[in-house]
C-alpha cells in the first residue's frame, strides 16, 4: 500500500523537487559555517579584554577553538548536515553570552555567571560533581527500579486477582494521590538511614503511576486474547506473563515514564532535605555558599543525567515495543 503510494509520488511531477534543489547550496554551506562561528567565539574570548578578573578565560578560548576544529572536521566528513543549525546557534549563543557577561558585564554578578565561571567549576570541582552524580544515580537506581518492579507486581495483582484488588485498592486510593514529598519528614523520622528513607519514597513515587497504569493496561486487555491461550491449555501463569503483561506493555511504559519523572523530583527533594550527598545536596550546598556558578554546573549535570535516563527508557521502550506501528520519538 505504502509502496504503491511512494511510487506514484515518485512519478508525479512534484513541486518539492525544485524547492529542494534551490535550497541545496544552503544545505551544503551550513555545515561549513559551524566551525568558523566557534573559532570566532574563541578569538573574541581570547583577544577581547575581560571586564573583571575571571578565571579560565584562556582555557575557554581553547575549548571553543577545539570545538570549532572538531566541527570543521565533521563538516569535511559530511557528518554534520542535520545538526549544523544547532551547532551554529550554540556557537552564536555562547559567543554572545561571553561578550555580554565576560567582556561587557551587562548582568549583575554573582547571580549571572560567565561561560568561564562554569568551565572553572568543572575544572576545579569535577571530583565533587562526579561524586554527587554517582550518589544520585545510585539512589535513583535503587529507588526507581525497586518502585517500578513493585509497581508492575502490584498492578498485575490488581489487574488479575479479585482478592488482591479487594484488599489493595482502598490502600492505593488513600496513599497513591498523596505527594510522596509530604511523607518525607515522617520517613526521615521512622527510617534511621536517610538514604533508605529517600529510596523508599522514591520507590513510592515511581511505583504508584506504574501500578495504576499496569492495572489499567491489564484491565483493557481484550478477553479474547485469554480465550485464545486458554483453548490451548494455558494456565494462570502463562496468561499473566505471556498475555496480560505483554498486552499491557504500552501502558506500563506510560507509567514508567511518569514514575521516572516523579522519582527525579523525589530524588532532588530528598537530597536537599536529608540525604547528605548527591546533586540535590550539592545544589543546596552551593546555594548556601552563594556559589552560583557551582549551582549552574550542578543543574547542567542534573539535566544531562535526567535526559540521559529518559533516553535510555525510550530506547528500551522502542526495543520492547518494536511491534507497534508507531510511537513518539524522543
Amino acid at each position: 500500500m505504502s509502496q504503491r503510494l511512494a511510487s506514484s509520488v515518485r512519478f508525479a511531477p512534484s513541486p518539492n523537487v525544485t524547492t529542494v534543489r534551490r535550497a541545496f547550496p544552503l544545505a551544503q554551506t551550513l555545515p561549513w559555517l559551524a566551525g568558523p562561528v566557534w573559532l570566532v567565539a574563541a578569538l573574541v574570548t581570547w583577544r577581547a579584554p575581560d571586564a573583571d578578573d575571571f578565571p579560565a578565560t584562556n582555557d575557554l578560548a581553547v575549548l571553543f577553538a577545539a570545538l570549532g576544529v572538531v566541527l570543521l572536521v565533521a563538516a569535511a566528513g559530511r557528518r554534520l548536515s542535520a545538526r549544523a543549525p544547532w551547532a551554529i546557534a550554540l556557537g552564536v549563543g555562547f559567543g554572545l553570552w561571553e561578550v555580554a557577561q565576560a567582556k561587557l558585564l551587562w548582568l549583575p554578578r554573582p547571580f549571572f555567571g560567565t561561560p568561564q565561571d562554569l568551565l572553572d567549576v568543572f575544572q576545579s570541582d569535577w571530583r565533587k560533581l562526579g561524586d554527587s552524580l554517582l550518589h544520585s544515580l545510585a539512589l535513583l537506581a535503587i529507588g526507581y527500579l525497586g518502585g517500578a518492579t513493585l509497581g508492575i507486581a502490584v498492578g498485575a495483582g490488581l489487574g488479575r486477582s479479585p482478592r488482591f484488588r479487594y484488599w489493595v485498592r482502598p490502600i492505593m486510593r488513600l496513599i497513591g494521590p498523596l505527594p510522596p514529598v509530604a511523607l518525607l519528614p515522617l520517613a526521615f523520622v521512622l527510617i534511621p538511614s536517610s538514604r533508605v528513607a529517600g529510596d523508599a519514597l522514591m520507590a513510592l513515587a515511581a511505583g504508584f503511576p506504574v501500578a495504576v497504569l499496569t492495572w489499567s493496561g491489564i484491565a483493557a486487555v481484550d478477553p479474547a486474547y485469554y480465550d485464545v491461550a486458554r483453548t490451548m491449555g494455558a494456565k494462570q501463569r502463562f496468561l499473566l506473563f505471556h498475555v496480560a503483561l505483554p498486552a499491557a506493555t504500552p501502558q506500563i511504559f506510560v507509567g514508567l515514564f511518569m514514575g521516572l519523572g516523579a522519582s527525579f523530583s523525589m530524588l532532588v527533594v530528598a537530597e536537599m532535605l536529608g540525604v547528605k550527598s548527591g546533586l540535590g545536596f550539592y545544589l543546596q550546598w552551593a546555594q548556601g555558599w552563594a556559589a552560583y556558578p557551582n549551582m549552574y554546573a550542578a543543574l547542567l549535570v542534573m539535566s544531562l543525567m535526567c535526559s540521559a535516563l529518559m533516553t535510555v527508557l525510550f530506547k528500551l521502550r522502542d526495543h520492547l515495543l518494536n511491534w507497534q506501528k508507531d510511537g513518539l520519538k524522543w
Binding site: D222, A224, Y225, D227, V228, R230, G233, A234, L321, Q324
Partner: peptide, 30 residues
C-alpha cells in the same frame, strides 16, 4: 480446555507483540 480441542474465533485475535511465526507457535509455548 485442552489442546486436542482448539477453537478458532471470528476475529483472528493474533497477539500483536508476536510475529506471525510466534503466533503460530503459541500452542507449543503454552
Amino acid at each position: 480446555p485442552g489442546p486436542d480441542r482448539i477453537i478458532m474465533f471470528q476475529d483472528p485475535t493474533l497477539y500483536p507483540w508476536r510475529r506471525v511465526r510466534g503466533n503460530v507457535a503459541l500452542g507449543h509455548d503454552i
